[in-house]
Design a binder for these strands. Structure first.
Lengths: 190, 190
DNA sequence: AATATACTTGCTGTTGACAAGCAAGTGAGT
DNA sequence: ACTCACTTGCTTGTCAACAGCAAGTATATT
């Protein structure tokens, strides 16, 4: 059922995907999607959580126990792997994040929580990096974390609306170089 | 009519804003919004273009004939001024950009064009900066421009879904410092 | 046999879209 | 000055599609 939803969202977008079509594409009746998930928002919320879990697996695999700039670079690599391995799911996740931005969206909370949690994780990596001396001690962890998450979110948006104009891999390599230069304690910045 | 649409989108989001409500809020009949704009997407497209024009005024005012890193910093200031002066319009613009991300969105083209144009402008600033020697010559203008636009887009998204957790001004100041350090020809990076 | 689970079908209110209608002009020909 | 054709700006009637709900059926479990 969730797979059918992913297919239809990719093809028609959230607006023009109907609950009836999802149920029928999954081999059931027109009413099952509503019955199982309560509402369209409820279903999208589940899709969002389901894809997020898979992304978090990639993230955990890639980052492990690392922290500081290494963790941030590893997370970028993990994200690129996720987008390469499951572009359909990555696209749908971004579409749902976007749909959640609308006021009164019933699964906005899911998106806010996921973003907030990832921001907190990044801030924590930076704090650990400062503690152990690998990251400059004059940066604000929360601020850098927000910028890092904003970069990923914004880049994914650009990739979503115009895939061919975004060189995801090249941008990530640039970003990693950048992070190392600007955050590492002895990076050579005066 | 467009003002009424902005109000209703802010209050209820794009999905739950009805064409009838927009017409009636503007003091007309339920059918006028459809009649004038052809469709819901047509109306949103106009709202999007109308707000974008106002943003581009801010941008032109702020940047003028500057280029290179100075232009990028001035554009960040202009954006912060735009968001501070007209937060309602800025929010609606971001909501509409998000809605445009859905496949088959009928005004996706508007969003793609606006983003592409701004990316091209930024890339051009960087190219001019390299030519006149104020910007390092080992950076890729397109790549940096994409990252810059992604940062703004992503930050605005985070601000949209959770305004209190984003310190827009602080992040912009950080970003300006960052741009100067990493892009200026004699910034002190080895 | 009784009950729970999984799914379907019938129905309703809302909404986007469209077409027909109407009132107030505008303007050319006489 | 008059009138007839036409445009413009807006309203109203109507329809099909859709989300959501309630009642129903079938299959499995105890």
């Amino acid at each position: 059922m969730l797979d059918a939803a992913v297919d239809l969202i990719l093809e028609h977008g959230t607006d023009k995907t109907t609950l009836a079509a999802i149920g029928e594409k999954a081999g059931y009746s027109r009413g099952l999607a509503t019955y199982r998930f309560g509402s369209k928002a409820g279903l999208f919320d589940e899709v969002c959580k389901s894809i997020s879990r898979r992304w978090l697996d990639y993230l955990n695999d890639g980052v492990g126990e690392e922290f500081g700039v290494d963790a941030m670079c590893a997370a970028l690599d993990a994200y690129f792997r996720f987008v390469s391995d499951m572009p359909r799911e990555a696209r749908v996740l971004q579409i749902l994040y976007c749909a959640a931005a609308s006021p009164k969206s019933e699964y906005q909370e899911t998106s806010v929580n996921l973003h907030q949690r990832q921001r907190d994780d990044v801030a924590e990596w930076i704090r650990l990096g400062i503690e152990n001396g690998s990251v400059r001690d004059d940066v604000n962890p929360e601020s850098v974390a927000a910028q890092y998450i904003a970069y990923i979110s914004g880049m994914t948006y650009l990739w979503l609306i115009h895939p061919t104009s975004v060189d995801f891999h090249g941008a990530n390599e640039d970003m990693k170089k950048h992070l190392k230069l600007s955050l590492r304690a002895n990076s050579g910045i005066k």
